[in-house]
């Protein structure tokens, strides 16, 4: 069932560019960006158990890193991408520091504050960030090796393929992390931090690495998004984006691997299917989040897994 579902999802995303080139493809591309963002958030919140409402801020930091580097240094996507990941990772480390002392709601409040500070910074520091108008970013363009053009990433379809590659790589890296020794330590910290210390685990390292990894995923998505959308503005990276990512993770099932992926796809596509109701998207997400947290706290995939375990 799990493998079957994964195959169906993969088939739809691979077939899409051959079937449509317009708005539908755009929606699927956004879904893929959210897959990367939500999978990243799931590392810190789902596996390591540290609440964060700042994924949107990291998304923005990645986007602004490539926008500013492109504008001031003239560098392109392939140089800005690692730079964006590193810069966002460092901000992730910064946000991880309060997590060493705070837990639960208190940590959540600090991440909301961080998200707000980043948003206000993007608006107020207008000499550097372009203020409310943001910064224009060129498409990725031609990729050449030794003078020969390999591929031209300018149009929607080309950007779509790259976004798909990003999502696949992100999911693969997340899989490796979660199934490594580090991933096991994250879960240990989530389950019982005192015990984690008692068996000799370095909980400081576990928490900080989770924050850095989670932020780095958002940074990569942010760099890509800036080029795909041809620019960045502060309003693309508000607390609402962070809340949307949290909703996607919770609906799908935090701490499950497939859950956040399904949540990201569902919550991107569903509002689009409701036509004019799409403008009430955030309202819809809010209601859905409350219902899920009360009735299905383990999320869709989490519930499904429970049912299966109960039968076994």
């Amino acid at each position: 069932m799990k493998a079957g579902l994964s195959l169906i999802i993969a088939a739809v995303f691979i077939a899409a560019p051959f079937l449509t080139g317009g708005y539908e493809l755009q929606v699927l591309m956004v879904a893929l960006l959210y897959v990367t963002l939500t999978t990243g958030l799931n590392l810190v919140s789902g596996y390591a158990g540290q609440f964060s409402f700042a994924q949107g801020a990291f998304y923005g930091i990645g986007g602004y890193t490539t926008a500013i580097m492109g504008r001031d240094l003239g560098t392109g996507f392939w140089i800005n991408l690692p730079a964006g990941i590193v810069v966002t990772g460092l901000f992730g480390l910064l946000l991880g520091i309060p997590a060493l002392r705070l837990k639960g709601h208190f940590l959540a409040i600090v991440t909301i504050a961080f998200q707000t500070i980043v948003y206000l910074g993007l608006i107020q520091w207008s000499g550097f960030t372009g203020g409310q108008n943001g910064i224009l970013v060129p498409p990725i363009g031609e990729v050449s090796l030794f003078g020969a053009t390999l591929v031209d990433i300018t149009g929607l379809t080309a950007h779509y393929w790259l976004t798909l590659v990003f999502a696949v790589v992100a999911v693969w890296i997340a899989w490796r992390l979660v199934h490594s020794r580090l991933g096991r330590e994250w879960v240990a910290v989530k389950d019982d931090e005192t015990l984690a210390g008692a068996v000799g685990l370095d909980t400081t390292r576990a928490k900080l690495t989770a924050f850095v990894a989670s932020a780095a995923f958002a940074g990569a998505a942010g760099v890509l998004n800036a080029h795909v959308m041809r620019g960045v503005t502060p309003d693309d990276f508000t607390i609402w984006i962070s809340c949307t990512i949290v909703a996607m993770m919770v609906v799908g099932g935090r701490g499950t691997f497939l859950g956040p992926i399904i949540g990201a796809i569902l919550l991107t596509i569903l509002p689009e299917l409701t036509g004019s109701f799409a403008q009430y998207k955030l309202f819809l997400f809010g209601v859905l989040l409350v219902v899920i947290i009360i009735a299905l706290p383990e999320g869709l995939v989490g519930r499904w897994r429970k049912i299966r375990e109960a039968r076994a």
Binding site: R184, E185, A188, D191, D192, T194, V199, G200
Partner: peptide, 15 residues
């Protein structure tokens, strides 16, 4: 005190 969401052998491995 055990790591509740992990298996018995993972609990041992973490130590």
């Amino acid at each position: 005190r055990l790591f509740r969401s992990l298996t018995v052998s993972d609990n041992l491995l973490l130590a």
